[in-house]
């Protein structure tokens, strides 16, 4: 006979778990793609700073990016390799972020009436909105400089240096870029530490401190470095 036992242990045990299907794997993908971005933005920032060297040096650099690796690679060959890589990383990064955010929202459907934060930082709490901000910005940014080559001041678009100066001569364009950089800075402040933690590289208190410091440094260097050019254009230091 079966005793009347109302105890059920649903949800039951899962069978045959696969590491590749776990939330942690999604996180590892985010971290890896995030680090690709970090590498990219560092190079990108270095390129932008060429603006301080003047019109010709900047355009030379932009041209050089396209001819790099010739004749082994075709014109813009390397650039396309990088672009494909970045697009793939973006798809992975955004898709994982979306999946994790959805999970998190179903993990607590009934919210607290009162909830205090003890240790989270502004940056850690704004990762999701910050990410969306960056994404939206990215679309505009590509329209602005890469795909659409939209010159908001109506000027010529065939000269990268001039297009840039025209853009940032508009105060509101500079503001948009600065806001985006603020978002990026915040994103990197938490993101860098988070990526290192996700990759399991923060096993000791010392390593954790280092990772947090790295977050600060990258956030300041990258967000600050990118902001210099628009600011100096607006201030008239960089001009046509």
């Amino acid at each position: 006979m079966t005793p009347v036992a109302t105890h059920t242990s649903a949800p039951t045990l899962v069978k045959g778990s696969r590491a590749a299907r776990s939330t942690i794997t999604l996180k590892i993908l985010m971290a890896a793609s995030g680090i690709v971005f970090i590498g990219f933005v560092l190079v990108h920032m270095y390129g932008n700073l060429k603006a301080f060297a003047g019109h010709d040096a900047f355009n030379e650099y932009a041209h050089h990016l396209r001819t790099f690796g010739e004749p082994i690679l075709p014109y813009e060959g390397l650039l396309w390799i990088v672009r494909v890589g970045l697009i793939a990383a973006l798809v992975v990064h955004v898709a994982s972020a979306y999946a994790l955010a959805r999970r998190a929202s179903t993990a607590r459907t009934q919210k607290y009436a009162v909830k205090k934060n003890r240790s989270s930082s502004l940056s850690s709490r704004t990762m999701r909105w910050g990410g969306v901000t960056i994404l939206v910005f990215l679309v505009w940014h590509l329209l602005n400089f890469t795909i659409g080559k939209i010159n908001p001041s109506g000027g010529a678009t065939n000269d990268p240096y001039n297009l840039m100066v025209d853009t940032f001569d508009l105060w509101w364009m500079t503001i948009i870029y600065l806001v985006a950089m603020l978002a990026l800075g915040l994103h990197l402040h938490h993101g860098t530490w988070s990526a290192l933690q996700t990759l399991g590289l923060t096993g000791t208190a010392a390593a954790r401190t280092r990772a947090k410091t790295a977050g600060w440094v990258l956030a300041v260097v990258i967000a600050g470095g990118f902001s210099l050019v628009p600011l100096f254009v607006l201030l008239g230091v960089i001009s046509k």
Partner: peptide
Amino acid sequence: DHEGFGGCTNIGE
């Protein structure tokens, strides 16, 4: 994951 816990975002709460 099966139980419905969320993924970690290293926030530290």
